[in-house]
C-alpha cells in the first residue's frame, strides 16, 4: 500500500509541480510518515479485548490486581513498538531505494508538538478502540462493527491521502470536526508545518479535549457493560 500511495501522490505532485498545496517532497514525507504512524497509532492486536469478552476469558483480567484497560493498553503497546520499528526500517529502505528527500522540520518546538500530537493520537485511537470492544458486552457480533469502524477511521484520519485534497467540500468540513483527524492528519501537518492543523497548541488542546471525552464515555460504557457480563464459556 505504501508503494501505491507513494507513487500515486508523487506522480500527481510532479505532474503539476504542486498537488493540493504539497510539493513532491512534502507529499513523499506525508506518505512515509503515515507508514510509521499507522504502526504506532493503529497497531494490529486491537480486537483482543472484544474476543476475550465474547469468550469469557475477560474474567481473568478482572481478578488481577490492576485495571483490565491498562493490561490491554500495554499488551497492544508492546506489539506497536515492534510494528513501529519494522515500519521505520521499511521506510528507511524505501527512502534509500527511491532516493526520497524528506522534509525535516526546523526547531525543537515542532518536534515537541509532533511527539505530543503522536502520543495523543495513539491514546485517542486506543480509547475509540476500547469503546468499540465494549460492544462485545451486549453482542457476540462485535467484529463487524469493528471492521466498519476501522475503514472509516483509516480514511477519516488521513491515512490514505492528505485530507487537504477534500478542502472546500462538505466532507472536509465534517471530517475536520471529528476526532479521527487527530490520529494521522494533524500530527503530520504539524511535522510539515503547513495547512489547517499546523496550529500546534490548538491541535494539542483539541486532542486532549477529545481524549477526556472518550475516557468519560469509556467509563460509562464499561460500568453499564460489566453488569451484563456473564463470563459465558468459562
Amino acid at each position: 500500500m505504501i508503494l501505491l500511495l507513494y507513487f500515486l501522490w508523487v506522480t500527481l505532485a510532479k505532474q503539476t509541480g504542486r498537488f493540493a498545496g504539497f510539493t513532491p517532497e512534502e507529499i513523499a514525507t506525508y506518505v512515509l510518515l503515515v507508514n510509521i504512524l499507522r504502526a504506532f497509532v493503529f497497531g494490529n492486536q486491537t480486537r483482543l479485548m472484544a474476543s476475550d469478552i465474547n469468550k469469557g476469558t475477560f474474567s481473568v483480567n478482572l481478578v488481577k490486581p490492576f485495571s483490565s484497560v491498562s493490561y490491554y493498553y500495554f499488551h497492544e503497546l508492546a506489539e506497536r513498538v515492534i510494528g513501529t520499528l519494522a515500519a521505520i526500517a521499511e521506510t528507511l529502505v524505501l527512502t534509500y531505494l527511491l532516493k526520497i528527500n524528506w522534509v525535516i522540520p526546523n526547531g525543537y518546538t515542532v518536534w515537541i508538538y509532533f511527539t505530543l500530537a503522536t502520543i495523543l493520537a495513539q491514546l485517542i485511537y486506543f480509547s475509540f478502540s476500547t469503546l468499540l470492544n465494549y460492544l462485545a458486552f451486549w453482542s457476540r457480533e462485535a467484529m463487524g462493527p469493528r471492521f466498519l469502524f476501522e475503514w472509516i477511521l483509516e480514511f477519516a484520519s488521513g491515512a490514505y491521502f492528505p485530507l487537504t485534497i477534500l478542502m472546500g467540500g462538505v466532507f472536509f468540513s465534517i471530517l475536520y470536526k471529528l476526532p479521527f483527524i487527530y490520529m494521522i492528519y494533524h500530527p503530520i501537518m504539524i511535522f510539515l508545518q503547513k495547512g489547517p492543523g499546523s496550529d500546534m497548541p490548538v491541535v494539542v488542546y483539541g486532542g486532549i479535549i477529545w481524549l477526556v471525552i472518550l475516557i468519560i464515555l469509556n467509563r460509562i460504557m464499561f460500568n453499564f457493560g460489566i453488569k451484563r457480563y456473564t463470563s459465558e464459556g468459562i
Partner: peptide, 29 residues
C-alpha cells in the same frame, strides 16, 4: 445479522472513500 450488515457497510464505505479520493484528485488535475 449485525456482523453481516456491518461488514457490508464497511465494504461500501471503503469503496466510497476510494471513489471520493479519485473524484477529489480530479479537482486538481
Amino acid at each position: 445479522r449485525l456482523d453481516t450488515f456491518s461488514y457490508f457497510i464497511g465494504k461500501t464505505v471503503r469503496f466510497g472513500f476510494f471513489a471520493l479520493m479519485i473524484f477529489s484528485i480530479f479537482r486538481f488535475t
